[in-house]
Design a protein around this nucleic acid. Structure first.
Lengths: 205, 205
DNA sequence: CTCGACTTGCACAGCGTTGTGCAACGAGCA
DNA sequence: TGCTCGTTGCACAACGCTGTGCAAGTCGAG
């Protein structure tokens, strides 16, 4: 066991990648999935996983880092391209949905796993950004809600996660889900349903 | 150890009650909380907990039963007193909010804990009832959403829980939260914000 | 006060998981 | 062909949790 400190073989890299991929899926099914379960699912022996990641926490940490980074980037990108709060919410929802489709699993994990609870902190900037947009929209009168902006941001975040889980549970078609999510979030912010639908339809073109 | 098969002392009853209460809170903080953690938090020794509940699952089962029963009753009551889908959603939201204040913890637990995942099944009737109301509202045109009724029910359920957590986190004033929750749920279902506000205000009188 | 029910503290076996050590095996590259 | 690095399979200690047994406490009702 060389602990993979130096060399790089294509095999090792492929394995590492596959382990990460599989771990994502496996940890959704069971947030307490053991290293053995993950290893087996990746078609590898437990000992090999420890060759790539020194500990269970290290594995999950790597996973979390990748996901948070991707989500934050998508969100920022969507927001930057938008004009006005409504479009901002719509765009970043759609953008986040794209990446999150892959990381859906992990985000769900983030909810329950105590181990990676630090993820909340790492997502805090994104949440703050959302609250900012919402506050703007409420001030402009584009959005209407009895909730203060931070609470509404909280609700939005959870709705997004909920819709992802709804897809997982087969209640929603993955193809259309992104747009539905965007419309639903806007609607929840008090944007009239027809306006929300029209806006998202426009963005989808 | 008499295993409490026969007698009834006030001490035993108080302990049993306290254990259940504390377990609720403890299991929210950490869904994998050990019997020892729960026992200590209840000011009792682990062995004593086993005196009241034969196993960890039994404890959680008892917990779940009580909460589900209360929530289901509140929901049914709210729904029964209502005329039309919108009022139904508003009333049961307000009603559930009342009881949930005590069980907030557990309902949140139900989300993430793998151990008590069977709770989902037990809440299924309630969820089905919600979906029914929502389907009715969508058919009537009172509600507007790109989501199918079951998915919308799912979202509503989660929003309720999210708002409860928002109260826990101090983002929301507990006093007003119930009404805000009802308005927010109606809004998310596509009811114009002004109508939702008016309806809930009326019900609050 | 006294009895019986409840509680405590300890000890124990069983189980699953984590992280590590080591020798042997196998595939790709020089 | 030989060398190297990754992989495998096994063994191991350590840890924490569950559920149980038992003897000695302690509290409250009668």
């Amino acid at each position: 066991m060389t602990l993979m400190t130096t060399g790089n073989s294509s095999r090792a890299d492929a394995n590492r990648r596959r382990i990460l991929d599989v771990a994502l899926a496996e940890l959704l099914r069971d947030p307490d999935a053991s290293m053995d379960q993950i290893a087996r699912a990746a078609g590898v022996v437990r000992r090999t996983v420890y060759g790539h990641f020194p500990s269970r926490d290290a594995l999950i940490g790597t996973l979390v880092d990748g996901a948070v980074e991707a989500v934050a980037a998508a969100h920022a990108g969507g927001r930057a391209a938008a004009e006005g709060p409504a479009e901002s919410v719509a765009r970043s929802t759609l953008a986040v949905w794209e990446v999150a489709d892959r990381y859906r699993i992990l985000v769900a994990l983030a909810q329950r796993s105590v181990t990676v609870q630090g993820i909340r902190d790492r997502l805090a900037p994104v949440r703050a950004s959302c609250a900012e947009v919402l506050a703007q929209g409420l001030a402009d009168g584009v959005f209407t809600s009895p909730l203060p902006a931070p609470a509404l941001a909280y609700v939005h975040e959870q709705m997004l996660l909920t819709l992802m889980e709804a897809v997982n549970d087969g209640l929603l078609e993955s193809r259309e889900a992104g747009s539905s999510a965007a419309v639903t979030l806007l609607t929840a912010a008090g944007v009239p349903a027809s306006d929300a639908t029209a806006l998202v339809a426009k963005l989808n073109r």
